[in-house]
């Protein structure tokens, strides 16, 4: 049984068929990048994974069961913008993520539990290089810093799946490369399953373990909405996925091969 499985998935908005016959399965720990023309349904697919849109036909399964049809803490998300809370400081933005699942009626933690949560939040912010901006509001942060904050916030409750919808699309190329590095690092460390939409094919090609291209296979010039897009290319890229990497590392045992493998990984992923 696969971790996530789409079975003949369709999505229609009225007469507009957005996605058709998407059948695919994903194992835990994969890093999937998604590319495709604007308006072809990439975000729609992510929304279905998130549970804020439901398939019109077909099934979307998580561990063999239909995905819950509302967002929950198993699935983290970073949007292109508006991902952080404008009224909370950097530290509070991450702290609130620790408070939500644990705190009851007041929505806050107190005393020892608050202290522990604060320490954890500070550590998570260090990991994304925001330790100097703990007391700043999002409006005081640059775009790249805001997205790093959003990532730290999404990961702190250790979701199983991380959904990224063009999270770095608005950033400068240099900063974007840094953010990719950071995302890969966090992915390696956590073993989380990542779906990342990007509009840059090369970006998609060098990041992650698997590349999906969404496109229409049928097209009727007289009614462009009649047919939807599907996954036209499903290419393993770069390296093996996290699990396979671990398996390899475990079975190889020898340090030499191990480092060689790592170096290869680095090369492929940092080009």
């Amino acid at each position: 049984m696969s971790f996530i499985e789409a079975k003949a998935l369709w999505k229609e908005y009225g007469d507009n068929t957005v996605l058709e016959r998407v059948s695919v399965s994903v194992e835990e720990g994969e890093f999937i990048t998604i590319v495709g023309a604007s308006g072809c349904g990439k975000t729609t697919f992510l929304k279905m994974l998130l549970g804020i849109e439901t398939p019109s036909r077909g099934e979307l399964l998580l561990n063999g069961r239909p995905l819950p049809d509302e967002p929950d803490s198993d699935r983290g998300i970073v949007f292109q913008k508006y991902s952080v809370f404008p009224h909370l400081t950097t530290l509070e933005n991450v702290l609130i993520a620790k408070e939500f699942p644990k705190a009851g009626l007041t929505g806050r933690l107190f005393g020892k539990r608050r202290k522990a949560a604060l320490a954890e939040a500070t550590e998570a912010l260090q990991a994304v290089g925001l330790e100097h901006a703990l007391d700043k509001f999002p409006a005081e942060l640059s775009g790249g810093m805001q997205q790093r904050l959003a990532i730290a916030q999404s990961l702190i409750n250790q979701p199983k799946i991380l959904l990224l919808d063009e999270p770095f699309g608005a950033l400068d190329p240099g900063i974007r490369a840094d953010m990719h590095q950071l995302t890969l690092e966090l992915w390696r460390k956590t073993g989380i399953t990542v779906f990342m939409i990007t509009h840059d094919l090369t970006e998609g090609f060098y990041l992650g373990t698997r590349l999906w291209v969404f496109d229409k296979v049928r097209d009727d010039p007289h009614s462009p909405d009649a047919y939807g897009a599907t996954i036209t290319y499903d290419i393993p890229v770069g390296e093996c996925d996290h699990r396979t990497l671990q398996k390899l590392e475990g079975s190889l045992g020898g340090d030499k091969e191990n480092t060689e493998q790592r170096q290869q990984d680095e090369q492929v992923t940092t080009v």
Binding site: P71, A97, E99, P159
Partner: peptide, 26 residues
């Protein structure tokens, strides 16, 4: 932005917590 309300839910917030910590202060 609905992104914020969705985000809060992915962080494990209930309706009440979304109201109390995300909506009310804003």
């Amino acid at each position: 932005p609905s992104e914020q309300l969705i985000k809060a839910q992915t962080l494990g917030a209930s309706t009440w917590q979304v109201i109390l910590r995300v909506v009310l202060p804003q």
